[in-house]
């Protein structure tokens, strides 16, 4: 491992996992598999507990802002564990000189999103640091939720078996491209808005009617390709995915074509992967599609026996290629 932290350590790929394993898992004595939320059994109930920090630039982007993101992200981490999100704690690190009006707007978004998701923001902390000591505003949210014992298997995927189907709830990459656009990093404008959304109600609807949900994970850093690789390793199997069945909106495809990005590796903030039994896949799809947040859901892949844990993509033109774990940040190509 390099001596200094680089941006690659935060990109959600190999280096991120290596850092977490070599520093935190080891020092804190945590046990693997690492899931989105910790599952805690206390006083006859099973609680889930998670935390996440938000350092997005810019703070406001089409489709949301750092506040909305801080609620959605933590709600989603709890919800994909199969839990009902309940309470949120929010900590703010604010740079001296930050406009109070902006803070008010951000807090309002957080309140709105919390109401929308049905969670309560119950505690928090505020620190102000000297100018230059942070980039305007960083938010950390932690959340707890209650997990029914019947869903405890979801975050580790231990019930997954060959033949299980992979489903996503809509087109990929919108968040990454919306944020890149808002950073003025593109020399053109795009109509893309972030998919930032709380998915707990969507997930609740699925879990209520379907008994064979074997795994869920939100598709943030590292994108779908990152999550599929992690999953394949976790369950010691392979995955076959069908590129033509993975929805990507045209404006996102267009930007990716120009810059040489791969939408399968881009971050999302309102998308999840569901693994379910083949028998129940159509039913899950139907429920997802009945919700606005899942209107473009698609069954796109299958778990297969493979000790090499490869994720193979059947390309839309009929070829095959291996989708590897992302490594470093995606960089624009020169030509």
């Amino acid at each position: 491992m390099n001596d200094l932290i680089s941006l690659n350590h935060g990109s959600g790929g190999k280096q991120t996992h290596e850092l977490i394993k070599k520093v935190f898992v080891k020092k804190f004595g945590m046990t693997e598999p690492l899931t989105d939320s910790a599952i805690l059994k206390e006083m006859g109930k099973t609680l889930v507990f998670t935390t996440d920090s938000y350092v997005i630039d810019p703070l406001f982007f089409p489709g949301g802002n750092i506040g909305k993101l801080a609620i959605c992200g933590t709600v989603n981490d709890l919800a994909v564990s199969g839990a009902e999100p309940k309470y949120i704690a929010a900590s703010f690190i604010i740079e001296e000189g930050f406009p109070v009006n902006d803070l008010v707007t951000i807090a309002e978004s957080m309140a709105d999103e919390a109401t929308n998701a049905g969670v309560k923001i119950v505690t928090g902390d505020t620190k102000v640091v000297e100018k230059g000591k942070c980039d305007r505003l960083f938010i950390t949210t932690s959340g707890t939720g209650i997990l029914d014992y019947s869903q405890e298997h979801i975050s580790t995927g231990k019930r997954i078996k060959p033949g299980d189907k992979l489903i996503i709830n809509g087109p990929l990459g919108n968040h990454s491209i919306a944020v890149a656009g808002a950073r003025n990093k593109l020399s053109f404008t795009t109509p893309v808005t972030s998919d930032c959304a709380s998915l707990n109600h969507l997930i609740e609807g699925v879990l209520k009617s379907c008994k064979e949900i074997h795994f869920m994970r939100d598709l943030t850093r590292g994108g779908l390709a990152g999550v599929m690789n992690e999953l394949a390793g976790m369950i010691n199997s392979g995955i076959i995915a069908d590129e033509a069945s993975i929805p990507v909106d045209d404006p996102v495809r267009g930007v990716c074509e120009i810059l040489g990005f791969d939408p399968l590796y881009l971050a999302n903030e309102g998308k999840l992967l569901i693994v379910t039994s083949a028998e129940e896949a159509e039913k899950v799809l139907e429920i997802l599609r009945s919700d606005a947040l899942g209107a473009f859901s698609s069954i796109f892949g299958e778990i297969v026996p493979d000790k090499r844990n490869l994720v193979v993509l059947n390309t839309s033109v009929g070829g095959k290629r291996i989708l590897d774990m992302p490594s470093g940040a995606q960089l624009p190509r020169i030509c």
Partner: peptide, 17 residues
């Protein structure tokens, strides 16, 4: 000759065809 071709060949899985 072009790196863009190399990337496209692999991305679409051309050799497997």
């Amino acid at each position: 000759v072009c790196g863009g071709h190399t990337a496209a060949i692999h991305r679409f899985g051309i050799p497997s065809l």
